[in-house]
Write a protein that binds this DNA or RNA. Structure first.
Lengths: 147, 147
DNA sequence: CGCAATTAAGTTGCGCACAATCAAAATGCG
DNA sequence: CGCATTTTGATTGTGCGCAACTTAATTGCG
């Protein structure tokens, strides 16, 4: 690369703006449910499998306890989840959906559908884009670990 | 969609993790320069064209003054930029690179090169991914505005 | 001209992300 | 068993993002 690249040429900037754009697309819908985007992701992870530990949620969402602990506290205060210290291992905390949290699944499911029409491309292309991104992330994380 | 999609199936989640992964890839390099990722983007915008106004930077980076004002204050405190009230229009503030800020361009240019090898795909594919993402963002923002 | 409407940037408040640190519980090795 | 090490989650501190609001300057309409 001879000259400094322009911002618009950077893949990292394209990712950064694309990610914020979708989150902004979801925002008004999630607002009505009283959720932020990361909170919504946590609920999705629990709809898939309830009773996960904090670290299991962290693995699923690539977030650490510094982010999850206060987030879960807010989700609990909102009445969507409940945290329980495990009996066997007192260090572990499992997170469980309340009735209200479980009830959000139906509406929550619909949240993600808006991206299909907003993406401006056929579903097939969107799925291909998603797969390419996951492949990319996988590789980047491997390169990060290797140091 | 009959059932709730799994997190790994969501394009939005793929974007979210991919974006954070690249930023994390850049972090150790940017740390050495004393920059955060958004600060680095602002400098890139200024290397491309110095003396932009705050709102022009906001247009380029899709950020508002609530984000940029404190960020620019920190960049100024670090000695990389200088802010000047415009003479013609006292509302406007132009942002100018200092010598130190301009001097970062050479090293800053190199920062973005690491993604090429970490991406785990040929440059051509990475550029195609970038273009697809920009197309996607464009469409999502249009759908956001239309309401 | 006079004043309402608009525009530009800054401020406030909240919720992430993430590094660094901490406390408590569990594990494992001599 | 005893104690160092590891694991798990929580806490602290900094810097975004973004909505809502404020302030000050400019514009434009009657």
């Amino acid at each position: 690369m001879e000259t400094t690249p322009r911002i618009g040429e950077l893949a990292c900037f394209a990712l950064y703006t694309a990610s914020r754009a979708v989150i902004g697309l979801y925002r008004p819908v999630l607002d009505r449910l009283g959720l932020t985007y990361p909170q919504f992701l946590v609920l999705m992870a629990l709809w898939e499998q309830d009773g996960r530990t904090v670290s299991a949620l962290g693995d699923a969402l690539q977030l650490d306890s510094g982010t999850l602990s206060p987030l879960l506290k807010r989700l609990e205060a909102a009445g969507f989840v409940e945290r329980r210290r495990e009996f066997g291992d007192e260090r572990r905390v499992t997170v469980h959906l309340t009735e209200a949290g479980a009830a959000l699944e139906r509406e929550g499911c619909a949240v993600t559908e808006v991206v299909g029409t907003a993406a401006g491309m056929p579903l097939e292309e969107l799925l291909a884009l998603r797969d390419k991104l996951n492949e990319f992330t996988e590789s980047v994380i491997r390169h990060r670990a290797a140091r």
